[in-house]
């Protein structure tokens, strides 16, 4: 009954054509702009882009912040995931629900909260002044620190969830077994937990890293117009400088990162399906 392949193709065609036409074609055209200069294929746009100090700074800042967020998310993620996994089943379910909950809330709302906390009259500054550590409000908002905090809060749940499922698949009793054999907590982590949860870490890490790389809202709200990341730079290039070529270059960088991450995730998934 399902042998008619033409029939199957006809059912899939509208979605495929739609995606190709409104998605693939314009995106490819946009990307091609960065490689063309008056009917010639060239890399000059990329040379130009990276020759400007501001662009280099933004590029490196995006990489640096994404890496940092990923690293810190991994450290916190392990502690949190380990704590959650060790809870009794009912409490564990509720806790997982609470970790997932923020993902359902608009990132605008989640990021906006940090203005209240990190602003000049925010909680942090009030506290610092109250205990006399500083007389003047210190500037936290519109800095790399603020972006870092915002991104970490935005993407930490993804890391925690990935690590929870990795930790749950840990063979039973390996940790007590290692403890009985005399391993300290640190060596249990390095020698047992880390190698056995490597996949979860890579999955969570990839999600956090690409999420941070391609974040717009957080740097837009918490970085302001001075501390840019790649997506906010792209937005400025288009709206302020009307420079579509630079936008195309940034778009290409972002897409390459995204695809690389996706291929990595697919590899892991298929390696897992085929039984490692």
């Amino acid at each position: 009954m399902f042998q008619n392949r033409a029939e199957g193709l006809a059912l899939a065609l509208p979605a495929a054509l739609f995606a190709a036409l409104v998605f693939l074609v314009p995106v490819v055209l946009l990307l091609s702009e960065g490689f063309r200069n008056a009917d010639q294929w060239t890399l000059s746009a990329y040379v130009d882009f990276f020759s400007q100090p501001l662009n280099r700074t933004v590029f490196l800042r995006t990489l640096k912040l994404s890496a940092l967020v990923t690293l810190v998310a991994a450290v916190i993620g392990y502690a949190a995931a380990y704590a959650i996994v060790s809870l009794p089943p009912g409490a564990k379910g509720r806790m997982v629900g609470l970790v997932v909950l923020p993902l359902m809330i608009s990132p605008v709302a989640r990021t906006y909260a940090w203005i209240v906390i990190l602003g000049r009259t925010g909680i942090i500054n009030q506290a610092l002044q109250a205990i006399g550590l500083t007389d003047e409000p210190i500037r936290i908002l519109f800095s790399e620190t603020a972006i870092f905090i915002g991104l970490l809060q935005l993407f930490l749940p993804l890391m925690i969830i990935s690590l929870i499922s990795a930790l749950e698949n840990l063979p039973r009793d390996v940790v007590p077994a290692a403890r009985v054999l005399g391993a300290g907590w640190l060596s249990v982590f390095w020698k047992i937990i880390l190698p056995l949860t490597k996949e979860g870490l890579v999955i969570g890490g990839t999600l956090v890293f690409t999420g941070s790389m391609t974040a717009y809202i957080t740097p837009a709200i918490l970085g302001g117009s001075k501390v840019l990341m790649l997506e906010t730079l792209l937005y400025q290039q288009v709206t302020v400088s009307n420079n579509f070529v630079a936008a195309s270059v940034i778009a290409f960088i972002l897409i390459v990162m995204s695809f690389a991450a996706n291929i990595l995730l697919k590899r892991i998934a298929s390696a897992r399906r085929s039984g490692k």
Binding site: F23, Y216, A251
Partner: peptide, 8 residues
């Protein structure tokens, strides 16, 4: 593909 690129 990041959304900002699609919009652009």
């Amino acid at each position: 593909v990041p959304g900002i690129i699609v919009g652009l």
